[in-house]
Every structure is written in structure tokens, then in C-alpha cells.
């Protein structure tokens, strides 16, 4: 996994609440068996007409807004557990998603792919939306070490919460799986000491 330390970028605003993973990547695009290429269909049905032409009023199709940070309304990523949603956002080029509330499974999936979910207050989220509305080139700075997010050329800064274990993983580019593999002996001992009294499956 790629390391995440500091990110300075302009941002793309998507001020809609309860964006579910079916909007991020519709199920009909989940037939691929690799992790790559989902960015082409990110927000597919909001981004394109059925004939494949772009919907000009959708933010990703507006050349004024670009950058590595997606800023979205509260309860981002609810619904299906499909990790394809995190893959699609990362594959499109985003490195962080900012919202005032994230659905659990999406948050975990994002963290497992080096995509940083930054939870800010509703008030700070509105300040970010306003800053971008006033100036699409307004930048954001996310510092993972300090757990801070600030709006460039302003004194606006907020500190965000972060699971200490996941912070270490992101700062160093570690995967959970590396850690779990290092635990195999402890896991085997646990199994021996906690024999489930029931039949195995086969």
C-alpha cells in the first residue's frame, strides 16, 4: 500500500448526502476480477447519459473543478460493502475523501487502499464547500501526522480523529494482512485453547 503523509490539492465538491456505493460504482460494473479500471465508471449514472455521453451538469464533468480530494455530503459510502467503490475513487485519482460522516464499511475499505477518509464537523464541511464555491482553485491541506485539515489562504483548520493503528499503517504503507500474518502462531495457540465444541464443516 502507498504511504500517506501530507496532501495539498484542490478539491471536487459533491454536496449530496447519503451517497451510497451503488452510486459510486453501480453493480453492473462489478463483473471485473481485478482491482484496476473502476475509475472509468466512477459515479457512472450521475456522470454519463445512457448513450455514454457526458452529463454536463455533473461536477466531475466540469473542468473548473479538479484535484485529488473529493468533498462530499454526510453519510458518504453507505450501502453495499463493495470495495470496488474505494477502488473506483482511488483509480480515478482521488487520494482523500472529506465528509462529515462516513459509513463504516466504506471507511474501512478506503483505509485498506491508502485512500484517506477525513471526518470533519458539519460546520467545517460547509466552510470547505463555501471556499470552493467562491474559488474553485481554493486548496486543502491534509496532514495525517498532525491529523489536521486546513483551507489554504485562510486560518481555517480542523483536527480529525483517526484510529491510531490505521494511522501507523497509512504513514508507513503497511497492510493489515502483513500484521495478521505475523500473528499466525498466536492465532494457532488461540485455536488450540478455544476448541469450539461443535462439528467442523467437513
Amino acid at each position: 500500500m502507498e504511504k500517506f503523509t501530507l496532501l495539498k490539492s484542490t478539491a471536487v465538491p459533491l454536496p449530496i448526502e447519503d451517497i451510497d456505493t451503488d452510486q459510486i460504482i453501480p453493480a453492473r460494473f462489478l463483473k471485473a476480477t481485478t482491482r484496476e479500471g473502476f475509475g472509468d465508471n466512477l459515479f457512472r449514472d450521475w456522470r454519463y447519459h445512457p448513450d455514454g455521453s457526458q452529463k454536463s451538469d455533473f461536477i466531475l464533468n466540469n473542468p473548473i473543478y479538479k484535484g485529488a480530494i473529493l468533498v462530499a455530503g454526510r453519510n458518504f459510502g453507505c450501502g453495499s460493502s463493495r470495495e470496488h467503490a474505494a477502488w473506483a475513487i482511488a483509480d480515478y485519482g482521488f487520494k482523500a475523501v472529506v465528509s462529515s460522516f462516513f459509513a463504516d464499511i466504506f471507511k474501512g475499505n478506503a483505509l485498506n487502499n491508502g485512500l484517506l477518509p477525513v471526518t470533519v464537523s458539519d460546520g467545517f464541511l460547509n466552510k470547505i464547500f463555501e471556499a470552493i464555491e467562491n474559488n474553485p482553485n481554493a486548496g486543502l491541506e491534509i496532514n495525517l501526522e498532525k491529523q489536521s485539515i486546513s483551507i489554504s489562504n485562510s486560518s481555517e483548520v480542523e483536527y480529525f480523529e483517526m484510529d491510531p493503528y490505521k494511522k501507523i499503517c497509512l504513514l508507513n504503507g503497511y497492510d493489515d494482512i502483513d500484521f495478521l500474518l505475523s500473528q499466525k502462531e498466536i492465532i494457532s495457540t488461540f485455536e488450540e485453547n478455544n476448541r469450539y465444541p461443535f462439528n467442523p464443516i467437513k
Partner: peptide, 22 residues
């Protein structure tokens, strides 16, 4: 509970998951 694909891989590899108690 439901998990993402990276976690599917973790369970296949170790029969465990890293979880904060909700």
C-alpha cells in the same frame, strides 16, 4: 457483519480480522 475484499483476503490468510469494538 459484512466486509470488503481486502478483509476477505485477510480472513482467507489468517482466519482473523483487525476490528475496533463498536
Amino acid at each position: 457483519f459484512g466486509i470488503g475484499t481486502s478483509q476477505v483476503e485477510q480472513v482467507l490468510a489468517s482466519q482473523c480480522l483487525l476490528q475496533l469494538k463498536p
